[in-house]
Design a protein around this nucleic acid. Structure first.
Length: 251
DNA sequence: GTTCTCGGCCG
DNA sequence: CGGCCGAGAAC
């Protein structure tokens, strides 16, 4: 006879989510309790950030209290979650692509903001590194594979890593409707600190050929097929699971 | 290998 | 002090 540990329904979350509280029964922290949540598919979550990344924009966890599992109106004061209109409206001209937030500017599917350090005395020293290490990742927090960039793209300035370059360009494409050319002035090459065009990413001037475009179209096509297959597999998996759930309940 | 549990860091 | 996550223990 297995004593199923009690997982209670959590009203503050979408249907099917369960909450569990486990009391520590030994050690220095005996008596303390840990709270876990289970998605409808059974995945376990042990912290609010983890939950938040998984749910994305589906649910606003701003005032969700992880420990109690309830919405706490009192937590409304937190002014985190910067609106990007703040940053755009107060800079009338072109945004400075190397210091503005790398938030997606097209369809808003990511609402998580990115930390921006302002008024730091050494600001100039680390804006080059701001985008370092940004990666696409999936909902289970695993980093997806890194990108290979074409030889024609070359970084400029102190940080020459590919990942920073890629992020800088992606950010530029999102932030500006003007063409992205890279740094066209050869003077910027020798002394970026002075000649940098801040409305362009830290990247040498580059050209995009017709073949580049055809190649990319092919990649997009293949990626769409992969996505289609993955979605299909997921739908089937969920269907199977709900069948199993009903059988368990009936037994 | 996966899951459970407590330690311990850091804000 | 509590949230969060690493890592050893347990399975």
């Amino acid at each position: 006879m297995i004593m199923e540990r009690k997982k209670t329904d959590c009203p503050a979350l979408p249907p099917g989510w369960k909450k569990e509280e486990v009391i520590r029964k030994s050690g220095l922290s005996a008596g303390k309790s840990d709270v876990y949540y289970y998605s409808p598919t059974g995945k376990k979550f042990r912290s609010k950030p983890q939950l938040s990344r998984y749910l994305g924009n589906t649910v606003d966890l701003g005032c969700f209290d992880f420990r109690t599992g309830k919405m706490m109106p009192s937590k409304m004061q937190k002014n985190k979650q910067r609106l990007r209109s703040d940053n755009l409206s107060l800079s009338k001209g072109k945004p400075d692509l190397n210091t503005a937030l790398p938030i997606r500017q097209t369809a808003s599917i990511f609402k998580q903001p990115v930390t921006k350090v302002v008024n730091h005395p050494n600001n100039k020293l680390f804006w080059e590194k701001r985008l370092k290490g940004l990666r696409s990742s999936d909902v289970s927090e695993e980093v997806l594979r890194t990108m290979d960039l074409p030889k024609g793209l070359q970084s400029i300035g102190p940080d020459s890593s590919d990942e920073t370059l890629l992020s800088a360009i992606a950010s530029a494409l999102h932030m500006s409707s003007a063409p992205i050319t890279g740094q066209t002035s050869s003077a910027a090459e020798k002394n970026p600190a002075i000649w940098l065009n801040s409305s362009q990413p830290l990247c040498r001037a580059f050209t995009v050929t017709d073949e580049d475009i055809r190649e990319q179209e092919l990649k997009v096509h293949q990626a769409r097929r992969s996505l289609e297959e993955a979605l299909m597999a997921d739908t089937l998996a969920r269907a199977n699971e709900s069948v199993r759930d009903s059988e368990d309940r009936a037994a």
